[in-house]
Design a protein around this nucleic acid. Structure first.
Lengths: 224, 224
DNA sequence: ACCTGAACACCGTTCAAGT
DNA sequence: ACCTGAACACCGTTCAAGT
């Protein structure tokens, strides 16, 4: 990285994100990020309280990038669909870092704004405050895991190593007993890699929204 | 731990799980587990290829403990509900370790058996092989995150520290601007801690099953 | 105000021995 | 066959200085 006179917090976060994208979240260390900026590890402690502070900032950057559509007059479930799709668009480029959000959604302004938006939609759907809170957590975490566990994803591998891993997973699943694991063997290709990532994510969002409509239908038969 | 003549793999895993439960997953180190058995760190390498092998064994133990009901003649969604509830019962006592399953569900016999069971139910629901694979991943991961992100959970804290954390979260959310975050402020109690864990998990499973019924209803109007 | 340098208490893992 | 011991290349973080 460029030799700079003064260390910049945003650039440190950008470096951390780049390292995470390229080599996995475990490669994000205080010493590594410092080295990229030609600086002593201790220099980072001026911008982050400790390593967890750096990771929290990383998590915040992910959700801050989410472009979420403004409220409109469509039914709550149509708006929810688009909000969730918008969040996914922000997370998908950074699958290695996304797992950080599993425990940090309420720890940043951006995460709180997203949560507020989802809570409002769930209130429109007729949910109580408590049901909305539990459900909002679950919905947001489902988006996170959708990205974290996308079939065919590898932590910090070049495309050659990635392909090798996909082939290895496929071969391993295909080598299982078709008597004991008939469905798993039949699904080996789908587990090893996504035929279509777009389809995978569309199904994911559809499943969540269908769930929301399903649990709401008893309390509020004529929705939105 | 007991001074033993010979190291036992299952006891090592049990120790790792105990450390994880008591002090969090980060406290599970090769050196720590070795020390509990009064043994040199390198002694563990006879039973696990490396640290990832130890963690994989830990993940396997979690899902191996799941008591999943046998198939019966009820509709697929009723059986799915009970299978998911059974998995939750196995995961809930070990929230710190549960996150390991997010990327390891297909890496153990027990995880494969669980996946096979869910795939069969989704096939009954009328899903294609590919849709079933994507959906099974999402459903199982939702259970994992339900446990990992249960409101009021703290990593490795005694009950005093836990209560302090719950109060701190609640106070932080209550101190937010009620103009900008009206729904979040109203839900501060629910985000800080579960009023009822049973209710939280019941809602979680219901949301998943409702989603499955919802997405299936187009392909197979008369389900089960 | 901002950064350095040395030090400390940890990691996972290697290699070569021990019994 | 099973375990030890020393060593290596890493961590996060402290403290006391430097400019």
């Amino acid at each position: 990285m460029a030799a700079q006179r003064r260390l910049n917090r945003d650039e440190l976060i950008a470096t951390a994100l780049a390292v995470s994208d390229a080599e996995g979240l475990d490669a994000v260390t205080i010493r590594r990020v410092a080295q990229q900026h030609d600086v002593t590890p201790m220099a980072l402690y001026r911008h982050f309280e400790d390593k967890d502070g750096l990771l929290a900032a990383l998590a915040e950057k992910l959700v801050a990038d989410a472009m979420v559509p403004e409220p409109d007059d469509r039914p709550w479930h149509a708006q929810t669909h688009d909000v969730l799709a918008g969040i996914l668009t922000a997370l998908r480029p950074h699958p290695n870092a996304t797992v950080l959000l599993l425990t940090r959604m309420l720890d940043s302004e951006a995460g709180l704004a997203l949560t507020e938006r989802v809570l409002a939609l769930l209130a429109d759907a007729g949910m109580s405050v408590e049901e909305g809170a539990d459900t909002a957590c679950q919905v947001l975490n489902s988006l996170v895991t959708l990205v974290v566990s996308e079939p065919g994803r590898s932590d910090g591998a070049d495309s050659e190593a990635h392909d090798a891993e996909v082939r290895a997973t496929r071969a391993r699943l295909l080598s299982l007993s078709p008597r004991r694991y008939p469905h798993v063997v039949a699904a080996a290709d789908a587990f090893a890699d996504c035929a279509s990532a777009e389809m995978y994510y569309r199904r994911g969002v559809d499943l969540i929204v269908a769930g929301l409509r399903g649990v709401g239908s008893a309390a509020q038969p004529v929705a939105g």
